[in-house]
């Protein structure tokens, strides 16, 4: 165990060549927080590991000219959390990053790693979904762009194919009047995965919701958007009690969580309703940033 060959390519092209040559025997290594644990437990036994740390073009955190953000796949979660650029352009994303595990893990874990690992309890996916973020995936046939909301297929499974690399995440510029928030329900310890967590993005103009996004972690085999609840909010007054209660009930109906040590399926659905209610109430009293 843990005696894999270790490769250090410096470009995406070199990485792709290694992946083509080594095939299924190889795993990509970004921050290591998931792969090292899986390898130690014998759940991953790669003969080869391709470390991405030296592939400069997969890193970085940049402003896009249109007012959005580009997050490199190997950018650490701590970098996103503490970046003044992110705090200015997508404060909800910085907020969600601050809820990931501990500072020590956030210093190591990466944006791309947390997405392709596809644990349905991860904190970044729901927040990226409410921002309509896109995953740029590069492969032998060029690049493709997939909404983060369509990235996940099931437990630990994404649409990223074995010969492909998640290159970066593009967060479009938020609409005028957009605000986002995150509520992570943690009945055990602060560094735990959530029992459920809810991300909400609201756009309001002249006192009415013009667009809504609600996405949940821990509510099923993938993080997911609750589109029926989103639709129920459009046209309502932000924070208005009847509307938010209706939307929150629709969130509960949209989920199918597994029962596990963090709560039964029914408990998680009910707590998702409660978290949605509280978050919508909070965002209803906040001005757009």
């Amino acid at each position: 165990m843990l005696l894999f060959d270790y490769h250090r390519p410096t470009t995406v092209a070199e990485t792709a060549a290694l992946m083509a040559e080594l095939g299924e025997d190889a795993e990509l290594l970004a921050g290591g927080t998931s792969l090292m644990n899986l390898a130690r437990l014998g759940l991953a036994e790669p003969a080869h590991v391709i470390a991405l740390a030296d592939v400069g073009e997969l890193g970085g955190l940049d402003a896009t000219p249109d007012g959005g953000l580009q997050l490199g796949a190997t950018t650490t979660i701590r970098h996103v959390e503490t970046s003044p650029l992110v705090r200015g352009r997508a404060p909800g994303l910085a907020e969600a990053c601050g809820h990931v595990a501990t500072v020590r893990i956030r210093n190591q874990a990466t944006v791309g790693g947390s997405l392709v690992h596809a644990d349905p309890n991860q904190d970044l996916p729901p927040m990226l979904m409410v921002h309509d973020a896109l995953a740029r995936i590069t492969g032998p046939n060029g690049d493709r762009s997939v909404p983060v909301a369509e990235l996940f297929l099931g437990f630990f499974e994404t649409v990223v194919q074995p010969e492909e690399i998640l290159h970066s995440i593009v967060v479009p510029p938020p609409a005028r009047g957009f605000r986002a928030g995150y509520l992570k329900f943690l009945p055990r310890t602060k560094d735990d995965y959530s029992t459920v967590a809810v991300a909400v993005g609201l756009t309001a103009e002249e006192g009415r919701v013009t667009a809504a996004r609600i996405a949940v972690a821990g509510g099923g085999s993938t993080p997911l958007r609750c589109t029926a609840a989103e639709r129920a909010l459009v046209g309502t007054i932000p924070g208005e009690a009847t509307a938010l209660a209706e939307a929150a009930a629709l969130v509960r109906e949209a989920l199918d969580p597994i029962s596990d040590a963090r709560g039964s399926s029914g408990y998680k659905r009910e707590m998702a309703r409660v978290c949605t209610t509280r978050l919508l109430r909070r965002l209803g009293t906040e001005d757009a940033g």
């Binding site: 090292m36 020590r104 210093n107 560094d191």
Partner: peptide
């Protein structure tokens, strides 16, 4: 497994778990 912090170290000044760093 990166939870307890007993193996906290600094890599280029940044706090990390030595058990999770190859």
């Amino acid at each position: 497994v990166g939870v307890c912090g007993a193996c906290s170290i600094l890599v280029d000044g940044r706090l990390m778990s030595a058990c999770l760093v190859p």
